[in-house]
Computed example of a mutant assay.
Amino acid sequence: MQDLKSKAAIVTGSATGVGAATAKLLAAQGCNVVVNYTKSKAEAEETMEACRAEGVKSIAVQANVAEDDDCRKLVDACIGEFGRLDHLVNNAGTTKFVAHSDLDGLDADDFRWIYSVNVVGPYQMIKHAAPHMRKNGGSVTNVSSIAGVTGLGSCVAYAASKGALNTMTLSLARALGPEIRVNAICPGMIQGKWLREGMGEDRYDGFLQHQLKTNPLQKVSTPEDNARAILMFIQGSDLITGETLLVDGGYHLGFAPTVAR
């Protein structure tokens, strides 16, 4: 297991949810953390303070990863504050909740916006981070989605963007080796505020119960579950790159059969 003490990480979209859980977990391992947010300043500062409570340095930086200058600002802030950058977690993402059969529910602007955050954003972050990360070696972990594997998700554009992020993970794992490892996690349903608000209370609760009954593991992930998967890529074997890890309770396998126990 790699020692993360005194190393530095940027976690995009880390005011709440998976990003916040990841920032806190990295801090607990002794890693200094840049907490990133676009609008949720109060939540980002809470996450930053939780990281500092672990005895590490942490700053909160407002930046929109869809903007190249903001991505550069995030990296510059990390180098300016900590003097190094070792790990990048591309967690920031967006979507629009539209039934896949509703072809009029998405337009070109929707696709452009979703891709600008979910695909172009991670690319821009990696572009600016890579020169610094090459100095000491490091890792990139992209937070993708099971939607990028199954084609199911909040909307067609979201699923397509996550499929593109998975492919980009492979491309950049080849391009950035041997100094930098690039991997991705693909969560299934994640319990929490973001999905509940997007789906609506009734639909969220129904989908949660369905997953708990039909997933082979009869579990639905939390932000903390996904943070641990991210930490595994960061802190685990230095021989793992170009991998996409499905964190979905077995959802991709289909419904669990009813068997006698």
Rank of each mutant, 00 (worst) to 15 (best):
Q2H: 12
E45P: 01
S171T: 14
S14Q: 01
F97W: 14
V149W: 00
Q191V: 14
C31R: 06
C186D: 09
T47Q: 02
Q211I: 09
Q62N: 13
D70R: 04
G242S: 09
M1F: 09
W194S: 09
L26K: 03
N142L: 03
T38V: 15
T258N: 12
D248C: 11
I126M: 15
F207H: 10
A92F: 11
A229H: 04
D3C: 10
L103Q: 12
H128C: 08
H132G: 10
D225I: 04
Y251H: 15
N90G: 00
Y115T: 02
M125R: 07
V247Q: 03
I240E: 02
H100P: 06
M48Y: 02
S161Y: 02
T222F: 11
Q191P: 06
V18N: 00
S14L: 01
A42G: 00
A229T: 05
V75F: 13
T258R: 11
K219R: 15
K193A: 13
E43C: 01
L26Q: 03
I126A: 15
L74N: 07
C155A: 11
N215G: 08
G192K: 07
F82M: 08
H210A: 14
L25K: 14
M168K: 10
S139E: 04
Q209N: 14
E81I: 07
D86L: 05
F82R: 10
L231D: 12
C155M: 05
I59E: 04
A130Y: 10
I146L: 15
C155D: 03
N142P: 09
E49F: 10
I230D: 02
P216T: 01
N91A: 02
D86C: 06
V34H: 08
